[in-house]
Design a protein around this nucleic acid. Structure first.
Lengths: 171, 171
DNA sequence: CGCCACGGCTGCGAAATCCGCAAGACTCCG
DNA sequence: CGGAGTCTTGCGGATTTCGCAGCCGTGGCG
């Protein structure tokens, strides 16, 4: 079950070439495959192969590897509001001490859907998905602020989601 | 080509029942189907049917409808940093006048991947995906700040993406 | 009440797709 | 030159997808 995107670091068989930060090297063909799947995650391998100039089996193997490596995941995405989660918020967090450690702790919370370390007036931005106000309040005040090292937080409750895309590459 | 999630408003055939805000009604079975596809966007219809207690064809129809309605999209998602976009940022924006109008304008920019209207010290949060610093600078300073009505902006450049999930429901 | 239209579900075959396997081609390196 | 590793290709067989026809429960309407 590949839930996380970044965490997976199996590193079993040494790959072609890794750039120094540890991310696997992606050639133009893999990029093209990803691009295809960003348009339609269920597009058949044969169609993708035709588009990128590869055989069906080749595409299948590359896709499988991309999934195994955690470079990409194929999933259904929705507007949470449509699916019954009525409160969402972005929370900006300031940390004293080990930022990475706090980020890890946030990662472990089920309600936290998105965690990114940033430069600027916040150390961390975290997106939270909750069922209602009580739930949201609980997560922010009882759980996040309770983490040792969290100096302060600022919340931005979502009013309306206007855009959500996954198609860099199609430009 | 369903790129946007929220924008789609075809409204051709009147649906079963809509709640007052215009979002289609989702029963427990459709929720369960979405949940299945959040785990694996390529899971076969038959397997989903077995899991939610429906025939293969029924699942197929419901999935197709969910896609057509724009309730859900099945796509590949990646960490943009891995795919060659080296600069990302969240931008908080303050607006004077029509917030919705600014949000629409942001929606039309290719580099803007995520737009949400919020309550709090920003009116809008927008996520930007760029190829390099110059590109990012250009988008923020030349394009966003140039929009009439944008009072001020604050940028949070991404240092590291720690978590990215799409599995509310699997709790 | 009877009738009909409609949406959703089921159960099939036919076509397309997925998947595993084995063999060839290519690159890199000692 | 040889070998290891990876990528690619080309198959069958199992699986899945797709389209269609039929069935059923609901709701509108005379």
């Amino acid at each position: 079950m590949h839930s996380e995107l970044v965490a997976s670091r199996s590193a079993e068989h040494r790959d072609s070439r890794e750039s120094k930060n540890g991310t696997p090297h992606l050639d133009a063909v893999s990029l093209a495959i990803i691009e295809q799947l960003q348009e339609d995650g269920r597009r058949p391998y044969a169609a993708i192969g035709k588009a990128v100039g590869l055989s069906e089996a080749a595409v299948r193997q590359r896709v499988q590897k991309l999934l195994d490596q955690g470079v990409m995941q194929i999933v259904a995405v929705t507007d949470p509001l449509t699916v019954g989660f009525r409160r969402q918020a972005m929370v900006g967090i300031n940390v004293e001490g080990d930022v990475e450690k706090i980020a890890e702790a946030l990662t472990d919370m089920a309600e936290v859907e998105y965690v990114v370390m940033t430069a600027g007036s916040f150390d961390i931005l975290a997106e939270i998905v909750c069922e209602d106000d009580d739930h949201l309040l609980d997560v922010i005040n009882k759980r996040i602020r309770a983490l040792p090292g969290v100096r302060s937080t600022e919340s931005f409750v979502y009013l309306k989601l206007k855009k959500q895309t996954y198609m860099w590459g199609t430009r």
